[in-house]
Simulated scan of single mutants.
Amino acid sequence: MIYFDNSATTKILPDVLSTYDQVSEKIWGNPSSLHKLGEPAWNLLEQSRRQIANLFGVLPSEIIFTSGGSEGDNWVIKGTAIAKHKFGKHIITSSVEHAAVRNAMAQLEELGFDVTYLPVDDQGRVSVADLKAALRPDTILVSIMAVNNEIGTIQPIKEIGEVLNDYPRIHFMVDAVQAIGKGLDDLVFSDRVDFATFSGHKFHAPRGTGFVYVKQGRQLAPLINGGGQERGLRSGTENVAGMAAMARAVRRVKEKEITSVANEKAIKERIAKHIQTFDHVHLFSRLDDGFAAHVLCFAIEGVRGETIVHAFEEREIYLSTTSACSSKKQAEASTLAAMKVPTKLAECAVRISLGDQNTLAEADQFNQVFDKVYAGFKKIID
């Protein structure tokens, strides 16, 4: 079995699962309780927070635990809207964001906020000049993802931050769900980024875990009110076992990040250079440094994406049609649509997304299977 759908989710690591199980069994007190069962739970929660903060070079108080990327995206977007609506109701984002961002923006539009959706070029990248031109006196938030989840485009986060240096009151959020463990920390945690969102199940942590980097001093209203947990920003009894397991997963990913990224790049190149020799194959992801090493999006013209996915699934190779959030809905890839890729070709797109457990041997096996799958599609293509 070859698993090439790591951008959708990753398999929890054995020692991460062991951490979750042990904490669930042995440290089950409520961290907010004053008695001796609550104290170790609180201490472990804060130890996990410090570990994550140290790995990224930020303050422990700047790490707020959540249930994942969608919650994080919604919280920063709507929390900014609540906190800053008196100063303006204009938000800037890109036309290629994840559904958690797009749908949160749509909800705010229904409430009277004005959202500018920046166009992208033929590589799925926004223009810094376009962003600068879109800024207004009433702009309160700019939200741009670090790495596109469909084709792997790396957005110009540092350059956008440089523009926003002249606008210190505007919040700058980065959806970094696809960036963790990919050698992009300098991008995500650059000086001008105020918020960055992360999802645990993208890096071998349990599902239902995540965190948001919230720069010290930035004003953000909570979406979940209650007992005042997480500095009053995210109430609810903390998932201590999940957060301890996630902290271990972050450490594991960071320990081998350099070698993992180099390996993913080599796998991507081996597959891309093989399949691009075939007629009717279109590559949407590039091999240069403007694209993340772990995402390869391509199409076989004339064959729908779901047909390609199932053809590989029959041979126990698992990939997806663009993002997992839209694949079952058979939706056209929003990124490719924004890039003005013809609809019929966009409907043929599939995504390989690599992880630190994939190998070059799997790339070679994929290429062998691709030859057979492509041959089987010849009567459809020709």
Rank of each mutant, 00 (worst) to 15 (best):
R252C: 05
F370W: 12
K265E: 14
R315T: 09
T66S: 15
H282N: 06
V177Y: 00
Q219C: 11
S323Y: 00
A221T: 10
F298L: 08
V250T: 11
V303Q: 07
E62H: 03
L164H: 04
T307F: 01
P206C: 09
A100K: 15
A349S: 14
D356Q: 08
G210C: 11
F366G: 01
I140W: 05
A133W: 02
I92A: 01
S334H: 07
K256S: 14
L55Q: 14
I63Y: 07
L45E: 08
I180N: 13
D175K: 14
K36Y: 08
E71A: 05
I64C: 07
Q229Y: 12
G232R: 09
R207A: 15
G227K: 07
D114T: 14
E257P: 09
K328L: 07
K273P: 00
G161Q: 10
D122P: 00
V214Q: 10
L283G: 01
F312E: 02
H90K: 08
G227W: 00
L187T: 10
D279R: 15
L319W: 05
F377A: 02
G305V: 04
Q47D: 14
A221C: 10
G217Q: 08
G112M: 05
V76D: 03
G210D: 14
G242W: 05
Q219E: 15
S353V: 02
M173L: 15
T197S: 13
A311Q: 12
K36S: 13
I271P: 02
S33D: 15
M246K: 07
S7E: 04
P40R: 00
N30I: 03
M145W: 03
E238P: 15
V309M: 09
K11T: 15
P40Q: 10
W42I: 00
A245W: 07
F172P: 00
C297K: 00
L287M: 12
L108R: 11
P31S: 11
S285G: 10
R304M: 03
D73K: 06
G161D: 10
K344S: 11
L319C: 06
K265M: 13
V295Q: 04
R286E: 13
E150I: 04
M105D: 11
L296C: 07
F172W: 03
F56Q: 05
H282D: 06
T321G: 02
M243T: 00
K256Q: 14
F198K: 12
D175S: 13
G210T: 02
S67C: 06
K273Q: 15
V16Y: 00
F278R: 14
K182D: 08
S320Y: 01
Q368Y: 04
V303M: 06
D185Y: 03
M105I: 02
P222G: 14
L45I: 03
R169M: 07
T209L: 05
K182R: 15
